[in-house]
């Protein structure tokens, strides 16, 4: 229960912000917080986490706030890489061949979700394949 006290502010914020399917459990010295929320709530929770545990260095919390659970096939996604183009690959892995690129800030279409890390997308130019969801932001 000690970890729930350490991260009380985080849990309270998640509750107050209406995180869906919120699940808080403590097991073998690690607190697990799971749920679905918008990208802005996810950001707020991560900023709170960083304040309570600077640099996340304690290794006592695994927080998985899914901000892409509600995104449906056919949705438009913006490419939000730091600076480079986004690789489009033949399969859901960095081992798969690069079959195309999407420019930074280009808008692409979600075809299907392979998993939470890899989505099949297509560009308006006809390039299609799998890209890493971390660099895709739902519009």
């Amino acid at each position: 229960m000690a970890l729930q006290e350490k991260y009380k502010e985080l849990i309270d914020t998640a509750t107050a912000q209406g995180v869906n399917n919120l699940n808080v459990r403590e097991q073998e010295g690690v607190l697990y917080i799971d749920g679905d929320a918008s990208g802005s709530i996810k950001q707020q929770l991560w900023d709170t986490y960083e304040r309570l545990d600077p640099n996340y260095s304690s290794g006592d919390l695994v927080m998985n706030i899914n901000s892409i659970a509600g995104v449906t096939e056919g949705s438009k996604l913006k490419v939000t890489t730091n600076s480079s183009n986004l690789n489009i690959r033949s399969g859901p892995s960095t081992d798969a061949d690069i079959v195309g690129k999407a420019a930074r800030h280009e808008v692409v279409t979600l075809v299907s979700k392979a998993n939470d890390q890899w989505w099949e997308i297509k560009t308006d130019n006809g390039a299609a394949g799998y890209s890493y969801t971390q660099y895709l932001t739902p519009l």
């Binding site: 690690v30 991560w46 996340y56 260095s57 695994v62 927080m63 998985n64 899914n66 939470d116 890390q117």
Partner: peptide, 20 residues
Amino acid sequence: NLQKLMMALNALKPKKVDNS
């Protein structure tokens, strides 16, 4: 870049992420 990396790793269902 730390937060981005931690967000990505925390989403993979690890038992724990040790960055000490």
